[in-house]
């Protein structure tokens, strides 16, 4: 048992810590040579809006979730996203998850493949998006990209070598509703997740609002001007399961978010979050670094001509 924990602490630490840092370095190098691009992304970490990736654009994002524990050890859970605009109405995304629990160990915790579809081709007051995701993760996953059912901080108190033995094959669906109004984006997500191993459906929600600090652009290129910052707040949590649809015993969080969209195409995001119930983590801190490779699809297509 001790040897196993040591191995987690040592060898596999590479997966959770070194790889994200290496990729961050590569991202910075790519950013220096790639054409500048900046999309219209919302600053949220958990909530989705109806804005999909532009067709042919590949977005790479490194994010992390730090959380404090009442019982057990605090942890940091980095993940990498590869998001591609396959069509104007279809975005596909791959996640690679990892985590490092202090005084315990680090490991790769699995992958997710998500797809988002816009069924309506025009913009409306409320814009629906259908979301389907397949997850192949283990029980040690701590990215908390969604909170559903009775997810709570107690789930993250178990040591890695124990909980990592549990494999989860899950289907997650979301109904995303999103509106843009006078510079604000307001988004609501309704989540239903099913572990394919004979578990009940688990439900959750995420709601958010955000707005650029300045609506009109200035005429000159600038890094620190208000037009490049988007501020907002999101709230998310679990809603029980099909066996027990209730708020009692569920976790809920509120988290201000701030995004800095630099003209170079790099976006930095930061979000401190606070748990609202006894079952929630007391404090979360998320950060993200994003870079978009616009024209990626065009370059790949050119290989086939």
């Amino acid at each position: 048992m001790g040897a196993h924990a040591d191995r987690l602490d040592g060898g596999i630490l590479l997966t959770a810590v070194r790889i994200p840092f290496t990729l961050a370095l590569l991202l910075t190098v790519f950013a220096a040579f790639a054409p500048p691009s900046s999309a219209q992304d919302t600053p949220y970490f958990i909530t989705y809006s109806h804005h999909l990736e532009e067709p042919g654009t590949l977005e790479i994002e490194l994010s992390s979730n730090y959380a404090t524990q009442h019982v057990g050890n605090d942890f940091i859970a980095p993940w990498i996203e590869f998001e591609y605009g396959a069509k104007g109405w279809w975005t596909t995304e791959l996640y690679l998850d990892s985590q490092h629990t202090f005084n315990d160990g680090a490991l790769f915790t699995g992958w997710r493949w998500e797809n988002r579809f816009r069924p309506l081709m025009k913009d409306h007051w409320i814009n629906p998006v259908l979301y389907v995701e397949y997850e192949d993760i283990n029980g040690a996953d701590k990215t908390m990209i969604e909170v559903v059912g009775f997810d709570g901080q107690a789930d993250h108190a178990v040591r890695n070598f124990v909980v990592s033995r549990e494999h989860k094959h899950e289907i997650e669906t979301k109904l995303i509703l999103s509106s843009d109004f006078k510079g604000f984006n307001i988004s609501e997500n309704f989540i239903a997740e099913k572990n394919l191993g004979h578990q009940p459906w688990e439900f959750g929600y995420a709601i958010a609002a955000s707005r650029p600090l300045r609506l009109a652009a200035t005429s000159s290129r600038c890094n620190f001007c208000r037009e490049n910052f988007v501020a907002g707040v999101e709230m998310y949590g679990g809603l029980g399961t099909t066996d027990s649809a209730t708020l009692s015993g569920t976790s809920h969080y509120i988290a201000p978010v701030l995004a800095w969209q630099m003209p170079s195409g790099i976006t930095l995001r930061l979000s401190p979050g606070w748990g609202l119930t006894d079952t929630s983590h007391r404090f979360l801190l998320r950060w993200g670094l994003t870079y978009e490779f616009s024209g990626f699809g065009h370059k790949v297509r050119s290989w086939f001509r």
Binding site: Q40, H50, E54, P55, G56, G88, M121, D123
Partner: peptide, 10 residues
């Protein structure tokens, strides 16, 4: 969206 021009409502 069908022809690849994204919505810029964001």
């Amino acid at each position: 969206l069908w022809r690849g021009m994204p919505s810029w409502s964001g």
